[in-house]
Simulated scan of single mutants.
Amino acid sequence: MPEIQVLDPHVADLIAAGEVVERPASVAKELMENAIDAGARSVTVEIAHGGLTFLRVTDDGCGIPAPQMKTAFLRHATSKLRTEYDLEAIGTLGFRGEALAAISAVSRIDVMSRTQDAPLGASLSLEGGVAGPVEQAGCPLGTTMVVRDLFYNTPARL
């Protein structure tokens, strides 16, 4: 019998991504729900090749503060829950903090975001769940997520 062992975190992320990211439409759904939860009044979705090679969701919501950009892509990172009691009063579309981590595990993502109190926005690129540096960027209030090459590193899902 094979030895029982804990999966490598990257492999676990890819498995979790399969639960959240079934196809490009599920990515668009998750990103639109995040935009609505961020208070967006306007959400624009653009796709190419059915969303497999390019999917961009732009909103005018509250934005992600630069110091929290990398944290937003960690598993179980959420702005909606603090204690177990918060689970009893969920009033948002998403709360588990799995969507961005799962999407980033199976794609290449560029995100730009600016909050109302920030004179400049911030940008971040991720590839296969690995984040680069957060950099200053000129951008409008809200968040733009560009997802490219969905399932590039998980051919079975493609």
Rank of each mutant, 00 (worst) to 15 (best):
68 Q>M: 03
70 K>P: 00
102 A>P: 06
141 L>D: 01
92 T>P: 04
104 S>Y: 14
132 G>M: 04
53 T>V: 12
104 S>D: 14
133 P>L: 03
141 L>E: 02
65 P>Y: 00
60 D>K: 06
113 S>F: 00
78 T>Q: 10
141 L>W: 01
52 L>F: 14
86 D>P: 03
40 A>L: 13
65 P>C: 00
40 A>I: 15
99 A>C: 13
81 L>P: 01
43 V>P: 12
87 L>Q: 14
96 R>N: 08
140 P>A: 15
39 G>L: 06
79 S>A: 10
120 L>E: 14
143 T>G: 08
121 G>T: 09
145 M>L: 10
118 A>L: 03
121 G>H: 12
51 G>L: 12
89 A>W: 07
85 Y>V: 13
65 P>I: 00
117 D>S: 07
81 L>F: 02
76 H>G: 04
120 L>K: 15
79 S>P: 03
102 A>Q: 06
71 T>L: 12
112 M>I: 01
121 G>N: 10
60 D>Q: 08
115 T>I: 02
121 G>V: 04
53 T>H: 15
95 F>W: 15
123 S>Y: 02
127 E>R: 13
142 G>Y: 00
52 L>D: 04
107 S>I: 07
51 G>N: 08
83 T>V: 03
106 V>W: 07
139 C>H: 11
47 I>V: 14
113 S>K: 00
79 S>E: 05
82 R>Y: 02
109 I>C: 11
135 E>V: 08
78 T>G: 09
82 R>N: 05
56 R>C: 11
40 A>T: 13
123 S>D: 05
85 Y>N: 12
135 E>N: 09
77 A>Y: 02
81 L>Y: 02
120 L>W: 11
45 V>Y: 02
146 V>S: 12
101 A>P: 10
109 I>R: 10
121 G>L: 07
141 L>F: 02
88 E>K: 09
61 G>P: 08
36 I>G: 08
129 G>T: 08
51 G>I: 11
114 R>T: 01
111 V>T: 13
55 L>P: 08
134 V>E: 01
42 S>D: 14
64 I>K: 00
62 C>G: 12
101 A>S: 15
51 G>D: 04
80 K>D: 15
54 F>T: 13
64 I>L: 02
119 P>V: 14
45 V>A: 05
32 M>N: 11
123 S>V: 01
57 V>G: 03
49 H>S: 12
45 V>S: 03
88 E>P: 00
71 T>R: 11
124 L>H: 01
39 G>C: 06
129 G>H: 10
108 R>W: 08
138 G>E: 13
46 E>V: 06
99 A>N: 15
52 L>A: 04
126 L>R: 02
108 R>V: 14
149 D>I: 06
97 G>T: 11
76 H>I: 03
65 P>G: 00
55 L>G: 09
97 G>W: 12
41 R>I: 04
43 V>F: 08
102 A>R: 07
141 L>H: 04
107 S>Y: 05
31 L>I: 06
133 P>R: 05
139 C>P: 03
137 A>H: 07
